[in-house]
Design a protein around this nucleic acid. Sequence first.
DNA 1: TTGTAGGCGTTATCAA
DNA 2: TTGATAACGCCTACAA
Lengths: 337, 337
Amino acid sequence: MGTTIKDIAEKAQVSIMTVSRVMNNSGYVAEATREKVMKAVQELNYQPNLLARSLINRKSSFVYVIVPDISNPFYADLTKGVESVAHQEGYHIILSSAYWNVAMECGHIEAARGRMAEGIILVLPKLPEKEILAYSRNIPLVVVDKHIVSPRIANIYIEQDHGAGLGVEHLIALGHRRIAFLSGTKNIYNSQARFRGYRTTLEKHDIPFDQKLVFPGDFSFVSGTAAFEHFLTLPQTRRPTALFAASDLMALGFMRSAYQHHFRVPDDISVVGFDDISLASITNPPLTTVRHPYIEMGRDAMKLLLNKLDPEKHLSTGDKLFNTFVERETTKPLTAG
Amino acid sequence: MGTTIKDIAEKAQVSIMTVSRVMNNSGYVAEATREKVMKAVQELNYQPNLLARSLINRKSSFVYVIVPDISNPFYADLTKGVESVAHQEGYHIILSSAYWNVAMECGHIEAARGRMAEGIILVLPKLPEKEILAYSRNIPLVVVDKHIVSPRIANIYIEQDHGAGLGVEHLIALGHRRIAFLSGTKNIYNSQARFRGYRTTLEKHDIPFDQKLVFPGDFSFVSGTAAFEHFLTLPQTRRPTALFAASDLMALGFMRSAYQHHFRVPDDISVVGFDDISLASITNPPLTTVRHPYIEMGRDAMKLLLNKLDPEKHLSTGDKLFNTFVERETTKPLTAG
DNA sequence: TTGTAGGCGTTATCAA
DNA sequence: TTGATAACGCCTACAA
């Protein structure tokens, strides 16, 4: 506790510079001297103070990760991806939740600057793009899972139109034509993208779009249960035979409510979700969905940041990420009638 | 980027000390001077370097949180609890996953020391107690969710015997007497505690313990599905009418497999889990379980650490934490026959 | 009310 | 191959 380079120097009867050289394997040190130093290091259980080192190198090896809420499985997965690359490259991550609150986001960003963080990974921020741009002039910043227009902001984002189309294509291939859409939170870009994918895919197959088949939701489990109530209010003949939900949570909520009303999935109605959260494969029946690759997004975000920090090092972010379709057991072919 | 106290001093035509005083609201500063300084701060967008400050104060405001795997919902919840208290008190958390690997745990602990972390919250470590004790002499350390014998190690741990008993009591109250136990990973203290709770509760009610009704498992979803296969191998008359699983994940796996074999829960067999992970309330049907309060454990762990760091400040860790029974829809009274 | 000197633990630079 | 000195950005203690 509190052993410094000076203590080692004293104990080993050398100058602090020599100790420093040993610790960093830099410059020339006679083998005998090195051993003397190492012995002192062992005995005093010395560890260099990395903060002091940061001060002089201007390299803290800290990266801030700001997520909406770490207890949300999406962001936990994303964080895992970030962490795996970070540790591999010797960085440590400082985690903060901002709870969809602009003021908290700003607070965390300021804190990151103050702590000499080398960069920030900002997940689904509420902060307007303009302000993000302003911050990004002070500190390297990567925005994840939010659609960004400015080419000046580093960004990991998957255009989810295509992914949503995958889910709808599958339902259409099974013969469904009355396909409902359970939408995400209004005015969120991700919601809109998923909706666009739904609508354009319908059009591509000459299936008329019906506003009545668009159920309101907010990505949450309960909004899924509410959607089923909404479904019940539709006259029998106008009910959809399939549902495409903008999130797995809503799909699950819908299914739960359906079961309580003695509807069977997929027998009475097919359901496709979006996200592929870890629960999706565990539910009963397991949910057919569109996978949004959070872990990989986290990984790539960190790599992108690292490449910014050190242009020498070109970490490959692999191929561009995209959504993939995952067929499980909540869909089945439309039977006549 | 890189604005220092010197730049401000120069711009405001004052000494460094005056700037320092303004930034810290300490000592006397004439109002006019203060304004001059603040103006320079604004214009140059200055932020004090907290690492440099840490060096002097010997107070980094960093706390390391070392979990087995952040993408696991338990630990994400726990981390959330830690974070909520930490931020409130001005601390930042550095998150690391150790993946049940002793070497990684040690690595993270060393890193924490090197980074001048003020403390470590160590969740379910693999590290032997003796080594933890050794580390805890160098840096304040709180061990969470692992049973610790030594009174010298700060610890947040719930004796889960009692909680497990709650689940079994419920089944017994419903008339069940042939109650199976689906066990967790062998040789893990938590598994043993949950098993003890099962067994002693049985004995309390004069229900003979039957080793055949103890199914092996490892806390995972798949080990739950395997357990159902095991269940099927039992002769009809010797099958349990209820199952108490040492984890929700296993309970869910068991149920999934059960449904695939056209068994109904709770009609054909009652199921109780343990943990109350967020999925538990979302499944179909929602799972009756014993809640293990991860968020609260995280909160209390951080408070305990804070109290260690600053004995002046007595953050109440509230009442002692315990497991609670959560009744949902996977159990029902045993019907004659 | 303000400024000067010294140091926190480390490394870069230059000299020996 | 080693060591003295001056930084890094800031704060404490003391002086003016």
